[in-house]
């Protein structure tokens, strides 16, 4: 394993970023923390989604920081209703637009319907609504920005919190090493709904993220994108390392970047020469500082196995 090894995207011409869409539909003046991963991701997502997009935002960090009256950071139509129901509200928006266009009450044009929800709003309280939306086949792209805990309310654990992380409700203590359960794999749950498109993404790979969001809207039917979003405030990581940390999560295999199109898996960023050790990712974060080498080893084994499983799925389904 080479320490200097960089993902595919790093081999792209360094000027490739200039090709990203210049339009910003998620604008400046929002109140996210310094170095906010989800806010960075939203910028990229909205560049990809474009003007003709309706956003349904679940309660959470991104809703709070982007819409405190009288200021909105949204340059597209946007609605927030509640925490657990963003997929349900989006289902209604989709049904309405389809019916109104069919009945000639709205002009026929392609409108992207996009849900933005956090990991609490997706893996926990909103899982039922998400499942319903995916199962019914709405033309909705659901993006979960996963910062691995309830950050908006003060870093309480969610079912997307990783094994061993210390949160305010799974604190590391004299007899506890933090969250004693493994992170819920919502992308796998979404894939089990046999929807046209499921992907994982990370704002540290903006062009990969932008391509995936665009792809999700090209395909008819529901799509789910799980966005790994570094939270310096909740994780206790230096804000300037947000992009670096996202890259490390990918390079260590903690958060592999892949897509599943009509059941066919593909790792969009892969490391043929092998993954970096997970310690490199874990060490910069206060939430993992207490971990013993044994726990780190457990995490390493799990990550290696999961990555292998993905590689197998890729091989089997691409066939």
């Amino acid at each position: 394993m080479s320490v200097t090894q960089r993902p595919k995207e790093a081999y792209l011409n360094v000027f490739a970023y200039r090709m990203a869409p210049r339009e910003e539909y998620f604008t400046r003046g929002h109140r996210a923390c310094q170095g906010c991963g989800p806010a960075l991701g939203l910028r990229h997502i909205m560049k990809a989604a474009g003007r003709d997009t309706i956003v349904v935002n679940a309660t959470g960090c991104m809703e709070i920081i982007s819409s405190p009256y009288p200021y909105t950071s949204w340059a597209v139509p946007w609605i927030h209703v509640a925490f657990e129901n963003a997929a349900a509200v989006a289902s209604g928006v989709d049904a309405a637009i389809e019916a109104l266009q069919r009945k000639g009450k709205l002009p026929r044009k392609k409108i992207n319907i996009l849900v933005i929800a956090g990991d609490g709003g997706t893996a926990d309280i909103g899982l039922q609504a998400l499942s319903g939306m995916l199962a019914r086949g709405h033309n909705v792209t659901y993006i979960c920005y996963d910062n691995e805990a309830y950050m908006n309310t003060g870093v309480q654990s969610s079912s997307a919190t990783p094994f061993g992380a210390s949160t305010t409700t799974t604190p590391a203590g004299k007899v506890s090493f933090g969250a004693g359960y493994w992170k819920k794999n919502v992308a796998a749950i979404a894939t089990a709904h046999n929807v046209p498109y499921v992907a994982t993404a990370c704002p540290s790979y903006p062009l990969d993220l932008i391509r995936k969001v665009k792809r999700s809207f090209e395909l008819k039917g529901p799509a789910y994108i799980h966005l790994f979003a570094v939270c310096p405030t909740g994780w206790g990581s230096p804000p300037e390392l947000t992009v670096r940390m996202g890259r490390l999560a990918v390079e260590t295999g903690i958060f592999p970047l892949y897509e599943v199109e009509f059941g066919r898996y593909r790792l969009t960023i892969d490391f043929p020469q092998g993954l970096r050790p997970v310690e490199e990712y874990l060490k910069n974060q206060r939430r993992f500082r207490h971990l013993s080498p044994e726990i780190v080893q457990q995490i390493q084994e799990r990550v290696t196995a999961e990555y292998q499983r993905l590689k197998t799925m890729e091989k089997v389904t691409q066939g």
Binding site: V89, G92, Q128, G132
Partner: peptide, 22 residues
Amino acid sequence: YITVESEHTAMSACVGASAAGA
């Protein structure tokens, strides 16, 4: 006709659909 998976979603979808102009 949206065959929702709960009443919570039924009302949520109603609000979304109405907000979209239906």
